[in-house]
């Protein structure tokens, strides 16, 4: 086990920098991944926030889906925030029919589930897996988890507002996903959890 794991951040588009800062703050090293070759040598991969339609499109053009799926099948730990959650989901509703995902996370997610940008919000969220202090969660044109398979652990559910009861953070083995953007808040506990998963796995 390395003391400072090298974690890739998929850098097709989106808030790559913010994830790098968060990962480095919890002791990981980072590298940007834009090609299949970039997947070798990393011990975890973060799919950042961004526009999932665009990210899927760019990954298709870069011939990245097959190598990404192969890496996932081989057990590479992956964490996706927002668009990244969509990229990891096995099933997506309300997406363009040609939208592809890496998959590996046995969930159905709905894109833009809370509405358009004017409906984007922030809220204090309980995420017991990372401690008792509420997590300041930022939801931007965010997806939600509509249903989960038997092996998926629910890490957080919205307790308040019109969308109360909605699943917004999940884990399945070495795969982690959040509807919200911990990378925008300076709270690194979710990234710390991911780096722990990576360390335990490698």
């Amino acid at each position: 086990m390395t003391t400072s794991p090298l974690i890739g951040v998929l850098a097709l588009q989106g808030d790559v920098k913010e994830h790098e800062v968060a990962l480095e703050a919890v002791g990981a090293r980072t590298i940007r991944v834009r090609s299949a070759a970039g997947l070798s040598g990393i011990s975890g991969l973060v799919i950042p926030g961004g526009e999932s339609t665009t990210m899927s499109n760019l990954a298709i053009r870069a011939n990245l889906f097959e190598p990404l799926r192969a890496a996932s099948s081989a057990g590479l730990p992956m964490y996706g925030s927002c668009a990244g959650m969509i990229m990891l989901a096995d099933r997506v509703t309300d997406a363009r029919p040609d939208q592809q995902t890496i998959g590996g996370l046995d969930v159905t997610v709905r894109r833009n589930a809370f509405g358009r940008q004017v409906d984007s919000f922030e809220i204090d969220l309980d995420v017991p897996a990372v401690g008792t202090t509420p997590f300041k969660a930022v939801f931007i044109r965010a997806p939600l988890v509509e249903s989960t398979g038997p092996d998926v652990e629910v890490l957080s559910i919205l307790r308040r507002g019109g969308a109360a009861g909605t699943i917004v953070a999940v884990r399945q083995g070495v795969r982690l996903a959040t509807s919200f953007h911990p990378e925008l808040t300076g709270d690194t506990r979710i990234h710390d959890l991911f780096v722990q998963i990576v360390r335990q796995h490698s």
């Binding site: 588009q13 989106g14 926030g49 004017v118 922030e122 809220i123 507002g161 925008l184």
Partner: peptide, 20 residues
Amino acid sequence: EAVTGTSRVKRGMADMLKGG
């Protein structure tokens, strides 16, 4: 409660467009 239209939500939306 959920709060919309915060500076973080507005600026964060632009963060999602980076590199595009």
